[in-house]
Amino acid sequence: SYYEILDVPRSASADDIKKAYRRKALQWHPDKNPDNKEFAEKKFKEVAEAYEVLSDKHKREIYDR
C-alpha cells in the first residue's frame, strides 16, 4: 500500500506524510544509489506516486475507500 511505501500508519497526518516522503525520497534518490540506480529509480517513483495520492486530501479519501 502507499502507506507501507512511505512507512506511515493510515492515521498519519499530512505533516507526517510530508516528512516520510522527504525521508524516503532522499533514501531512494537515484543519485544517492549509484550502484543500484535502476532499482532506486523504481523505488523513487513508487515513493513519489504514494506521496502524490496521500498528500492530496481528495485523492487520499478515494484511496482509503
Rank of each mutant, 00 (worst) to 15 (best):
S1K: 09
I17H: 00
K19T: 11
H58R: 14
D35F: 13
K19H: 12
A40R: 06
D16Y: 04
Q27V: 07
K19S: 14
N33Q: 06
Q27G: 03
K18N: 13
K42D: 07
D56C: 06
A20Y: 01
E46L: 12
E41H: 09
Y51C: 05
Q27D: 09
I17E: 00
R65C: 11
K59G: 04
E38I: 12
L6C: 01
F44G: 05
E41V: 10
Y3A: 00
D16Q: 10
E46R: 05
A50T: 01
P9G: 09
D16S: 06
I62F: 09
K45F: 09
A25K: 10
L6R: 00
Q27C: 07
I17M: 04
S1I: 06
K43S: 05
D7A: 07
Y3L: 01
K32R: 14
E61G: 08
E46D: 07
E38S: 12
V47Y: 05
A40E: 02
D15Q: 09
A20T: 01
E61Q: 09
R23N: 15
D64P: 02
F44I: 06
Y63K: 03
K45T: 08
S11M: 08
L6V: 01
D15F: 06
P30T: 06
D31W: 05
K57G: 10
Q27S: 05
E61N: 07
S11R: 07
K19G: 07
W28P: 01
A12M: 01
K37H: 08
H58L: 13
K37A: 12
D7L: 03
V53F: 07
D64G: 02
F39R: 06
Y21K: 03
K37N: 07
F39Q: 09
K32P: 02
P9H: 09
D35M: 11
F44R: 07
E4L: 08
P9W: 06
I62Q: 13
D16P: 01
K57W: 10
S11L: 08
Y2Q: 01
E49G: 06
A48E: 14
R10P: 14
D64N: 04
I62Y: 08
D56N: 09
P34A: 10
Y63L: 04
K57V: 14
A12E: 01
F44D: 03
A40P: 02
D31I: 10
D31F: 05
A12L: 01
E38P: 09
D64C: 03
A20V: 02
S55Y: 10
E49S: 06
L6H: 00
I5T: 07
S55M: 07
V8C: 08
D64F: 01
K37P: 14
Q27T: 06
F39L: 13
F44V: 04
I17P: 01
S11A: 09
A14Y: 14
E52M: 11
K19I: 13
V53G: 02
K43D: 02
K59P: 02
K37R: 15
F39W: 13
R23Q: 15
S13P: 05
W28V: 03
Y21A: 12
N36A: 09
P34W: 13
D64Y: 02
S13F: 04
E49I: 09
R10V: 12
K43P: 01
N36E: 07
I62E: 15
A48K: 14
N36I: 12
E61S: 08
E41Y: 08
R65N: 14
K42H: 09
R10L: 10
S13Y: 03
S11W: 15
K18Q: 08
K45D: 06
Y63T: 03
E4G: 06
S55P: 00
L6S: 00
S1E: 08
P34D: 07
N36S: 08
A40G: 04
K24Y: 05
E52G: 10
A40T: 04
P34M: 13
L6M: 05
D31Y: 04
D64T: 03
Q27R: 07
E41C: 11
A48T: 15
K42T: 10
K24A: 12
F39V: 11
A40I: 05
K43A: 07
K37D: 05
A50S: 04
R22S: 11
S55W: 05
I5P: 01
R65W: 07
L54M: 03
E46T: 06
S11Q: 12
D31R: 07
E49V: 07
V47L: 14
I62A: 14
K42E: 13
E4P: 01
E38T: 10
E41M: 11
K24N: 04
H29T: 12
P34Y: 08
K37C: 06
S1G: 14
K45M: 11
D56V: 05
S13C: 07
V47M: 07
E52L: 11
A20H: 03
L26M: 14
K57S: 13
K24V: 06
V8A: 03
E49Y: 07
D31S: 13
K43Y: 09
N33E: 04
L54S: 01
Y2S: 02
E4N: 09
K24I: 08
K32H: 15
S11T: 15
I62S: 09
A40V: 05
L26I: 12
R65E: 11
K59L: 14
Y3Q: 00
Q27M: 08
D16T: 09
K19W: 08
D56S: 07
E38N: 08
L26N: 13
Y3M: 00
P30S: 07
D35L: 14
S55T: 06
W28T: 03
S13R: 05
S1F: 10
R23V: 15
R60Y: 02
H58K: 14
A14S: 13
I62G: 06
A50Q: 00
K18R: 13
E38R: 08
V47F: 05
R23P: 02
I62R: 08
D15W: 07
Y51D: 01
K18I: 13
A20I: 01
A25M: 14
R65S: 13
V8L: 12
K43H: 07
E4T: 09
I17A: 01
Y51H: 04
Y51F: 13
V53C: 10
Y21Q: 03
I5F: 05
K32Q: 15
E52S: 11
A12T: 02
N33G: 04
Y3T: 01
K19L: 12
R65A: 13
H58F: 09
S1C: 14
I62P: 03
D56H: 05
E46Y: 04
S55C: 06
R23M: 13
N33M: 06
K18F: 14
E4H: 09
S11V: 06
E41L: 10
I17L: 08
H58M: 12
K32D: 07
R22C: 14
I5A: 06
H29N: 11
L54N: 01
Y21H: 06
N36C: 14
K45P: 01
I62M: 14
A14L: 15
I5H: 04
P34Q: 13
K59D: 04
S11G: 12
D35P: 05
E52C: 11
H58A: 14
A50P: 00
I62D: 11
A48Y: 13
E61P: 04
K32E: 11
H58E: 13
V53Y: 05
L6D: 00
